[in-house]
Design a protein around this nucleic acid. Structure first.
Length: 415
DNA sequence: TGTCCACAGGAAATACGGGGGT
DNA sequence: ACCCCCGTATTTCCTGTGGACA
């Protein structure tokens, strides 16, 4: 047999034996693993399917002023997570900067990503780092100093400067300070033509802004609508094509995933995550992706969210959660009050050698857990028996067990 | 109707870890 | 080495409160 034939034969045998292998390139199931260029390539295909058409047209009309030498005003963009704000914008800005270069219009753009919350100081520091105006600091330098460094660095630049600030409302403290700097102070002190692109996922975002800043801020608004089921289908098809072998997906599955995701939030990232999880399950089970696997994947994805959230949570928060679970278990009732929770917490801390916090602080931990929806708490007055928070954990028992086990693991305790 | 429980939750004070300037 | 500044976490201190009970 000639070599190539052997090759083909073996390949086809392997193919046959691993007939269950349905994933061709798993990187395309996880954006984190794609390099920037690939992400943009995927995005381009999505745009080619006329998804996000209106948004891109609006962006173009907003920024076209630059090519004419005008100074467009700032831009506020609103859209929920996973509606492609960040990617669309960076795609667009890259394109724009190419055009500017071709036409000899000086333009630079920077992307400040605040997707995890940070205080004003860190945000400024990050900005400074991006502009090479300063090294990375943890603490210790005054805000004023940081601002001055940024200004000095930019003092020689005369062209357009587009600052793309992602998730602005994630600035926890001193947001007004930060905004005042960007909106009022910076434009006055640097020669560049500054255009801010402020992205947020809350519609009411500008409302709790210092009125003085707000009146100063001339905004153009652009809204990213959540993807609808049809958009999501396009997006998923592209992924399926790149990541899976043909025929791996049973008919109707894409439609189902798209429908589920668009019903929830229209979040493309979650749609892709659901596809990925389904594919992994299918591969493990040695079948194609079926309806029931999608359901299963969806359930597991929900649970994973809680577990990863908890894994990276501060120890005190984990201790509080474990205590609540224990107390609830011992009480044999649906709910417990803050006092019982706190007692259990102190006990738990003693067991794992953790210094217990005050009752006051414990209350805050409970509110935080509530925000993460790991538990539900509401204040309840029991008349002469005082006021307390009624704490309930309304997660499936299986998940509660897994959460508890995970916490014990983190404390390196035997189950 | 008033009392009083068992906390909630705001504000200010304090502790702490880390860095800069000199 | 010293002192001061910063942001963050926690404590301390405090006032407030819905309703069962007398």
């Amino acid at each position: 047999m000639e070599p190539t034939k052997v090759r083909t034969k073996i390949l086809s045998q392997i193919q046959h034996m691993v007939g269950s292998a349905i994933i061709k390139d798993r990187r395309f199931l996880d954006d984190e693993q794609l390099i920037r260029a690939e992400q943009l390539a995927v995005l381009e295909e999505i745009f080619n399917a006329n998804v996000r058409d209106t948004e891109i047209r609006e962006l173009s009309s907003h920024f076209s002023a630059i090519l004419r030498g005008d100074h467009p005003c700032h831009l506020a963009i609103w859209g929920k997570t996973g509606t492609g704000k960040t990617l669309t914008l960076s795609y667009f800005l890259n394109l724009l900067s190419e055009m500017c270069r071709a036409k000899n219009v000086p333009m630079r753009h920077e992307h400040l990503d605040l997707s995890n919350p940070r205080p004003c100081f860190r945000a400024l520091n990050d900005l400074a780092c991006m502009l090479n105006a300063s090294k990375r600091y943890q603490k210790g330098i005054s805000l004023e100093e940081m601002m001055i460094r940024i200004e000095t660095k930019l003092s020689g630049y005369q062209g357009y400067l587009i600052l793309f600030i992602d998730e602005v409302d994630n600035i926890r403290r001193d947001r007004d300070n930060f905004m005042t700097f960007l909106v009022r102070r910076l434009p006055q002190r640097i020669p560049a033509k500054l255009i801010l692109v402020l992205v947020s996922n809350r519609l009411d975002w500008p409302d709790h802004l210092d009125p003085r800043v707000k009146s100063f801020l001339k905004l153009n608004e652009l809204i990213f609508k959540p993807y609808d089921a049809v958009d999501l289908q396009h997006i998923l098809r592209i992924r399926v094509e790149k990541a899976l072998y043909p025929g791996a997906v049973e008919s109707g599955v894409i439609e189902k995933i798209a429908a589920m995701a668009s019903r929830d939030h229209g979040d493309a990232r979650r749609a892709v995550a659901l596809l990925a999880k389904s594919a992994y399950l299918a591969e493990k089970a040695g079948t194609n992706i079926t309806f029931s696997l999608v359901d299963q994947a969806s359930a597991e994805l929900d649970q994973d969210r809680y577990l990863t959230l908890l894994r990276s949570a501060p120890t005190q928060l984990q201790a509080a959660m474990a205590a609540v679970i224990e107390a609830l278990h011992k009480a044999k009732t649906e709910s417990i009050g803050t006092g019982e929770g706190y007692d259990a917490y102190k006990l738990f801390c003693k067991r794992v050698g953790l210094r217990p916090l005050t009752g006051r602080a414990f209350g805050d931990l409970i509110s935080e857990l509530d925000i993460y929806s790991l538990l539900r708490s509401r204040v309840l007055s029991r008349g002469r028996y005082g006021r307390t928070r009624e704490i309930v954990v309304d997660l499936p028992q299986e998940l509660v067990d897994r959460v508890y086990a995970q916490i014990l693991l983190n404390f390196e305790l035997p189950g």
